[in-house]
Design a protein around this nucleic acid. Sequence first.
DNA 1: CTGAAAGCGCTAACAC
DNA 2: GTGTTAGCGCTTTCAG
Lengths: 327, 327
Amino acid sequence: MRDVAALAGVSHQTVSRVINHAPGVTAATREAVEAAIHQLGYRPHAIARSFAEGRTRTLGCVAPNLTDFTYASNMEGAESVLRRHGYDLLFASYHDRPFESVVETLVARRRIDGLIVISPYVDLPVSALPADFPLVLMGGCPREDVNHLVYLDNRDGARQATEHLLALGHTNIAQVTGPQQEDCVIERDAGYREALAAAGISRDPLLTLEGDWSATSGYEAFAAIPPEATAAVAQNDRMAVGLIRAARDGGLRVPDDLSVIGFDDMPLASYFDPPLTTMRQDTFAIGQTCAEQLIAALAGSAQDGRAVRLVSELVVRSSTGPPAQRR
Amino acid sequence: MRDVAALAGVSHQTVSRVINHAPGVTAATREAVEAAIHQLGYRPHAIARSFAEGRTRTLGCVAPNLTDFTYASNMEGAESVLRRHGYDLLFASYHDRPFESVVETLVARRRIDGLIVISPYVDLPVSALPADFPLVLMGGCPREDVNHLVYLDNRDGARQATEHLLALGHTNIAQVTGPQQEDCVIERDAGYREALAAAGISRDPLLTLEGDWSATSGYEAFAAIPPEATAAVAQNDRMAVGLIRAARDGGLRVPDDLSVIGFDDMPLASYFDPPLTTMRQDTFAIGQTCAEQLIAALAGSAQDGRAVRLVSELVVRSSTGPPAQRR
DNA sequence: CTGAAAGCGCTAACAC
DNA sequence: GTGTTAGCGCTTTCAG
């Protein structure tokens, strides 16, 4: 920068003005400086700038992992908008370490200006963050303890899924859940119950099985599903796929003997056999929304925060259908 | 830091020594400083440190996108080892902007100390980077123009896949490729040809169809496959799945009328119908290896660089089998 | 073993 | 419109 200033015959401050597109520079000076910059191949030092400015122009994004398509897609959506706003994106996963340590590294040491947390866990210690730190939480239900929230209405989604099965004529509807302490599991379970209750069906606890989101757990859950069930709502597509496989291995036809609906509309959901009926969520858009919220929070607008509610949409394919005669 | 020094009754320099675990501090002083740090809740300012040190302790990772499981998994593997070494990970995708702009933002402005580039493109302009910048390229074939390279031997993988079909007795083996300018496509095509040549089979250009990695493109490719083909190697699993769907829609049985082998062993590959025979690559380990290489490069060891070759492994499931009688 | 001084490259506040 | 002066919070170098 000093060299540029010398070459252009101005002070380093004028160079600073030029690279920051600050007003109050003659066109002539500006051109001279730009010529010098070009000639010297000068590039502003991002770290020095961050240091002087007191902000990093870098935002963090933490997710449980990346291999889950849902999270990866969220993050990609967020990246696309943050990048457009001139921010860099620091990524951290917290599957192998406590969330607090992420906060410690990224926030307490002031490496980032704001944070997007993708979390299916209701008990995430957001309190580990300074109260006024720009934070957007991507969660699975409404909550009061966080300023900026983007959430997928899981309760509504599960209700829709269950209603779809009810509308087809099913009355014995099983449920395969994720780990029961997770936020969205609780919500989806609530939606399932609400739909049953609204249909005047008393809920049989034996019809609910707990999995761990994996296809294998869906497969294993099948063995525990009472034979009178004619349909099942799986809380994600992987478990739905496992369940279908197990049902077929057990000699059942899908959907004739057992209808199965999933959740997520993962890639290739339509390429399974039978093509999966599922609840679609636009994960890319969710990520984008989170990023927009964060940008707004950083700009100081939306000071009070607001919760953005997103809903999932039923996609009917061929893994659900009316119940067949008694099997 | 000044406050900590004052409270502990030492200079800020001693505080610096303590937080950096530098030698030459009395146990007593150290304890006093640590007490002060704890009491004040002091955290070193990462940016100030980076600025003073002249390095950022942040590494970059660029990939075409995140939603492709392969890349996401690479990146997650890389993150796990970088994190362990105290580095942060800056992520950037380049599906919507030139690679050079990534270099500009991250490297030229010195936001990162090193870079992992996940690239299926042979023509990636690594020359945009300063020659001595710590770089690890995750590619699809050996190449000379880069110091640190981790590559999956795609030629070998495609050869294995094709040999598997040959061993089953197929002689008319079609191929569905990705976009033909991509690195790994060229390599996989070469492996396919090599296997055919070794079996004394002359290659029929009509048997090779170009797709775009999507399941849809695999589906569409089917229409162009000559009816005498009894088997096909798809260059990824998604296209394999699309191809299988199309074959069945066309009244063929898989694998009896058409054997299909994929590439990647993507999640749930075994849950498709039929379970997919494919070439497995350990994408998480590949990412880890890239990170280790980068760490080594930063440490100055491995100065001359070396190429790490990884191979994929045949996973036989049920989408391949011996050819049936003439269909 | 500890302290003092200098400086990393930039922006912000004010003076000219 | 442009230059001058500080100073961001730390590490490095060198004295004591």
